[in-house]
Design a protein around this nucleic acid. Structure first.
Lengths: 218, 218, 218, 218
DNA sequence: CATGAATGAGAATTCATTCAT
DNA sequence: TATGAATGAATTCTCATTCAT
């Protein structure tokens, strides 16, 4: 299920290197932001830049790998949340889980929304999360006019909190999420705007992906 | 009180250029992120890079100028919100106003939290916002255990939404803010974590400021 | 005789500006080297750069003007030295005078040897200095195998001393010149190398002039 | 003892490049002055600018490296001159050696006096040269009132000659030095000025070092 | 295959010179 | 005419990527 299994048959040490590099990159991104030099990452991983580039043809692809990993973790998390007891707790568990995953990936979260690939995996995730959401709505924990796209928006807001506070207060996002979950409770005050459409979310991804690829002014 | 009056006595055309440059920078940052080349900004403004550098000795100082301006707008907004009718509406008005200001400054919002300067102006803003918050709490619109620092966190979350959705759906943040405001309503569910302290907020600023200044990996 | 008389008929204040600029440039060069920005010079002169450029079409031409002036002073000095009493003292007087002039022009001395113009004025100077030299030789103060070109070399060496020591010890060149004059006294130790030829001196001028004009690597 | 051994362990080709770069820089400086672009130097060395910057983190450090090398050569030269036969010849041998070294480094000689580092190496050189001077004085070749600082001044004058004449007549400095050595012979004519003090020499270094580091007019 | 040296396009910044006010 | 704002080519330096060892 992980990327590594998609590679033909990576030699043992090569695989070890791959893991070391991804871990080093995550750390380096967290410490210095996505703009760290690849040499810093390679250093941290204890390999030469050449080795890094053998495993990842571009810096971008390394970031993608991290995001892939993160995406898989999010997917697993969603699946696992389906098993939560009581069932309606799955929704909050999912959001909290994503919060923690974001903390573990500060520095490259911006690229999460960059990730248009994995069309079907994404569909799968969506359907899982929709289930979580529905259960929470059925249990009266979440208002009915909240839709799947709103969850994306909430995760983006969560990112804003995590990226800003993580280095100083790595748990602050939890207090924030408490407030947000409270805000999702049923209410008779209607929301002033319609939700994003799925197509709009796709365009968000597309735009950010495009910008991530060195789109300098033209 | 605005920046423009702090400059000795800019010639008419020079002043016009200054404005053009700031506007172009804001636009360019929104379109391509803070990493756009200064040449792009200068182009957009219809001036040569030299002109840009005559007005702003470094790219950083240009960003600072934009942030200064934004900070002043936020401050004015807070003041104006004090006059809202009914008084308890000022709090939401302030948050909504900041949302709009963030939309107008996408691309360089990260630097807003970078802005440790203006110590006293910041104190003033804080005291104004504390008033807005208290009124909302007194009117029963906001739970009592919410403190000033939480407002900062909320604005950071808002940034997450704005930076992600603005190019596609420039109003989506309003729906998000509806939810957040609902979440601030009084509730008997206690919050799981204490709020940030003022000192922690200061450290957030310090860290991000440090990172903004070319702190590359070392 | 001075450059100013070559200009058609400079208005009074314009002429005053010209003088101020040249003086400011000399000072600025002394304080910061030839690489000072023209804006610094203009500032020092109390005029705008535009005015400077109205008077001198290029920075180079401003330097040339200073050198012109210096050259004239050297020429006058040589003439005056012919009247020294006793006549054989004229030679040393000339060298000492040039030393002082160099002190007054530190920072742009390199351009003195850049100055191929004034062919006939230069001839005249040469003939004057040859007279001074001959008198000194006739008086037994200077060895016979020293020629006019050697005087140029000595003035170049003097420049080395002046440019290095002037800011700290503006008279140190005098001690140096004492030694040099002693070295010129008649001796039976022949010199190991022939003197420069006049043509070689011309080539020295040519090369340095060429280099002064922005001859960057190619 | 040479710089090369101070580097950890340069790969063969890297070391070759380092040498090529230093040589190219020396040549480029000689041909065009210290203001040549680094691209010209890199070109001349047959490497990319990146390579140059990998070896020397700033252009200044490249110049420093050349000066370091030169300084060591001067030091060795002084040591070797102690072994000259007859012993009193060492002094002249030293001066002549420095003349040749200056010719090999035209273009960046100005930075030699910029070099305040190597405090102890400098002390050592001073003591060696003092010995050479004393021997020459004891042998009646140099007047007694000449002190160590005068040697510095003489080398600065030599620089004036070398920088001016080298491209046209690379040996002319020898004739000049003949005259200077003659001037150093014992004489009953006292010198009109006292010698520089050691402190003054230090200030000369300090000033020129300061100016070399981009001290533009202010 | 791993390494880290080499590469060079691209970034910010400067400054002699031109031009609008 | 004097001013200083505008200009942009040139300069130093960086860093993702390639390649020799």
């Amino acid at each position: 299920m992980a990327l590594s299994t998609e590679q033909p048959a990576l030699r043992r040490d090569a695989a070890r290197n791959r893991v070391k590099i991804v871990a080093a990159a995550r750390e380096a991104f967290a410490d210095h932001g996505v703009d760290v030099g690849v040499d810093v990452i390679a250093n941290q991983a204890g390999v030469g830049v050449g080795t890094l580039y053998r495993r990842f043809p571009t810096k971008e692809s390394l970031i993608d790998a991290i995001i892939d990993e993160l995406f898989e973790q999010v997917t697993s998390l969603a699946q696992d949340s389906l098993d939560a007891q009581p069932p309606e707790a799955g929704f909050a568990a999912y959001l909290r889980g994503v919060g923690q995953l974001q903390v573990d990936h500060v520095g490259c979260l911006s690229r999460l929304w960059t990730h248009t690939g994995h069309a079907e995996a994404r569909k799968e995730l969506e359907s899982t999360v929709r289930q979580l959401l529905r259960r929470a709505q059925d249990a009266g924990l979440v208002r009915r006019d909240v839709v799947y796209q709103d969850i994306s928006v909430i995760l983006w807001s969560l990112r804003g909190v995590v990226e800003t506070t993580a280095p100083v207060a790595p748990n602050q996002w939890q207090r924030y999420l408490d407030l947000m979950l409270a805000g999702l409770r049923p209410s008779d005050q209607p929301l002033s705007r319609p939700a994003l459409t799925g197509a709009q979310v796709d365009r968000v991804f597309a735009i950010h992906r495009h910008r991530a690829r060195g789109a300098r002014g033209s």
